[in-house]
Design a protein around this nucleic acid. Structure first.
Length: 188
DNA sequence: TACACGATATTCT
DNA sequence: GAATATCGTGTAA
């Protein structure tokens, strides 16, 4: 898989809806991970945790981060490359009431800001690991949308390796997009 | 079996 | 801007 393909597939998710448990978001920010060829990817080393990414594409990869948060990824394949796209932020477009309940005291526009918060608002947990995302029921991806006219890109947030690869992609002027923070462990 | 460490978010100064 | 909670996972022993 070429670098261009990795970014291409990630870009295709921007602006698309993602249906979680009772809440739907429009994806505004993603990060691409290049699988076995990307030192920052969990699939760089094939383990039990990353095994799902070596399976067929369009399945859900969920992992626990810092013991507290869940982060949701779409496996984009192809199968042997284990590439995936981390969903970093989204705008809640349906199930607003439920989303508010899951994050009390937070402004609507910011409900789905950051990968941990997004997974929380969508109600995604490790129970959803491996869910096929193209089937219509339960947790799934919305229909494909036209390529966004403008896409911004920059280095990925919080990664200590390959910290300068600009594979974080987001839509301009979206209040739900998270702020950039370089990993304290990244060199330089 | 033990131990170190995050693809984070929030709180504190 | 800096500190840190918290625990599953990966890696070493």
């Amino acid at each position: 898989m070429s670098e261009a393909e990795v970014v291409e597939r990630a870009t295709g998710l921007l602006g698309r809806t993602f249906v979680g448990h009772g809440v739907t978001v429009r994806i505004t920010e993603v990060e691409a991970y290049g699988g076995i060829e990307d030192p920052a990817s969990h699939a760089y080393t094939r383990t039990q945790r990353s095994e799902i990414m070596f399976g067929p594409p369009w399945h859900l990869y969920v992992y626990r981060s810092y013991g507290i948060h869940h982060c949701a990824n779409v496996v984009t394949g192809p199968t042997e490359k284990a590439a995936a796209v981390l969903l970093r932020a989204g705008e809640v477009v349906d199930g607003l009431e439920l989303a508010r309940e899951r994050r009390p005291g937070v402004a609507d526009a910011v409900l789905g800001r950051g990968p941990g918060n997004l997974a929380l608002v969508l109600g995604l947990t490790l129970d959803d690991l491996g869910t096929p995302l193209l089937t219509g029921d339960g947790v799934h991806l919305g229909p494909e949308v036209p390529r966004p006219e403008q896409v911004r890109s920059g280095p990925r947030v919080g990664v200590s390796r390959a910290a300068d690869v600009p594979w974080r992609l987001w839509l301009p002027d979206e209040p739900s997009v998270s702020a950039y923070r370089r990993s304290p462990r990244a060199p330089r």
